Simulated scan of single mutants.
Amino acid sequence: MKKSKLINKILIAATILTLTSGLVACSNGAKNSKGDGKTELVMGLDDTFVPMGFKDNNGELVGFDIDLAKAVEKKLGKKIKFQSIDWSMKESELNNGNIDLIWNGYSVTAERKTKVDFSDVYLNNRQVIITLADSKINSKKDLAGAKVGAQNQSSSVDAINADKETLSKFNDGKVITYETNNDALMDLESKRIDAVVADEILARYYIKGRGESKYKVLKEDFGNESYAVGIKKGNTQLLNDFNKALKEVIKDGTAGEISKKWFGQDIVVK
């Protein structure tokens, strides 16, 4: 009898342990299904990318994406903290957990889709070619032998590299890369390079501020693209929650008003 009772106690203990483990697993699963439970999300950005996110004359972060993020955080119920990063390391920063969002004129590309999950698109864009007004470059074929600049690790570089025929005709058969778009455009002004390839949204804003008579934007370009927010792969709950908040900001007209502030018109993707 004693042996039978001992066996029964062991079986009961094993059953309790199994049930407890199951409850813990369910609890963890529930937590994971709701994301990481963070109340603050870190947004990684290039703080030189006008007009999306940049430092003004007072050193304050301003821009379209900054204002949009502030609107989204109210709907999302999470505080968004702005963190300047090395843009060439953005995906590594995200995957290492140093930031939660890549959000600063972040273009959707096939290569980037393998590294991050993208939110819904909120702006459309294209990769334009900028030269000085008196330049003899008027088309892509005129870039033969030209020194062409672009921001390092940007979608501009990806777009250029995708057009292998045009790239092969550049000076030395390569694009000259810079840490920031501003650096590239300054070299263009100084005539150290002949053209710059950059996001049209940035280019138009930059040209408007520096004097439209100094530059020209060619009719030909290196392709259309879209802006979205990068989120770590597998964080489905954050992705869904973010998209819901973004849709609400677009639907209630807030995003459109922010667009009018920065671009003079509502160019937000509905």
Rank of each mutant, 00 (worst) to 15 (best):
V197P: 03
G22T: 10
V229W: 09
L41F: 12
N161D: 14
G63F: 08
T48S: 15
L202A: 06
T18Y: 14
S154V: 09
L6K: 04
R126V: 05
D67C: 04
G209V: 09
G149N: 08
S92Q: 12
K70N: 14
I16A: 15
S92P: 01
C26V: 12
A150M: 03
A198P: 02
S226E: 07
S27N: 13
G234I: 12
K79P: 10
V24P: 01
N240G: 01
F242R: 01
P51R: 08
E60D: 13
G44D: 02
G29L: 12
I16G: 02
D172T: 05
I231R: 04
D117Q: 09
A255P: 00
A162L: 09
T236H: 11
T254E: 09
M43D: 06
L61W: 06
S168Q: 08
T236W: 09
D46C: 06
S190D: 13
K174F: 08
I193W: 07
K247G: 11
S88Q: 08
T39I: 08
L19G: 09
T166K: 10
T48C: 02
V128Y: 08
G253I: 05
L61K: 05
G211M: 12
Y178S: 08
E248M: 06
V197A: 12
D46T: 04
K113P: 01
E220S: 05
L61H: 12
L238T: 03
K191A: 14
L167W: 01
D117T: 07
D86S: 14
V62E: 11
L202H: 09
N95P: 01
S107C: 02
I137Y: 06
K244A: 15
E60M: 07
A14F: 14
L61M: 14
L246I: 09
K2N: 05
I231W: 04
K31Q: 07
K90M: 13
T15A: 15
N58R: 05
K115R: 12
I80C: 08
D46F: 03
D142M: 04
D100F: 13
V196G: 05
Y227H: 06
V72G: 01
E91R: 00
K78M: 15
S84L: 09
I10M: 12
L6W: 01
G264I: 12
I129E: 11
L101V: 01
A203H: 03
S226Q: 07
G35V: 03
D86P: 04
D163R: 00
E91W: 00
N152D: 14
F242W: 14
D163Y: 00
R204S: 11
K74W: 11
L11S: 13
V229L: 02
V121M: 01
I85N: 09
G63R: 02
N104I: 09
G29N: 11
D56F: 13
D36R: 11
A255G: 01
G44K: 00
F64Y: 13
E111Q: 09
E225P: 00
D86N: 15
W103L: 04
V24T: 12
I201V: 04
M52S: 06
S190G: 05
S213T: 06
G22D: 13
V268C: 03
Y106G: 00
